[in-house]
């Protein structure tokens, strides 16, 4: 399955490094990445493939949310189907 990881928060150094390291530790592959800064707010969206990971989505979700709390950004992990359902006819 594929999940969308969204990272939103105040910009500071090392956010991408920390988040992508955590994702790599879970054996999750990042397939696409998009990142911008809007008025000082860091926004990163990643399309992740979990099919090779032994970690269930729940544990992956919990790990990243916890990391977000540690580095002071908001991290969401959501099944990609929710976006396809809501925005594609």
């Amino acid at each position: 399955m594929k999940a969308i990881v969204t990272v939103i928060g105040k910009d500071k150094s090392g956010i991408i490094a920390k988040v992508s390291t955590a994702i790599a530790e879970c054996e999750v592959n990042i397939e696409d990445i998009s990142q911008t800064i809007v008025q000082g707010n860091f926004t990163m969206i990643m399309l992740c493939d979990l099919s090779a990971s032994k970690m269930p989505l729940k544990a992956f979700h919990e790990k990243l949310v916890k990391l977000g709390e540690e580095i002071g950004v908001s991290i969401h992990v959501q099944h990609e189907d929710i976006f396809n359902a809501m925005h594609k006819i």
């Binding site: 969308i4 696409d32 926004t43 969206i45 399309l47 976006f83």
Partner: peptide
């Protein structure tokens, strides 16, 4: 994002958060 539009992703998150 080539598959999903980034604005749509942010819109969904804002719907829940805000």
């Amino acid at each position: 994002m080539n598959i999903l539009n980034r604005n749509e992703i942010i819109e969904t998150i804002d719907m829940v958060e805000k």
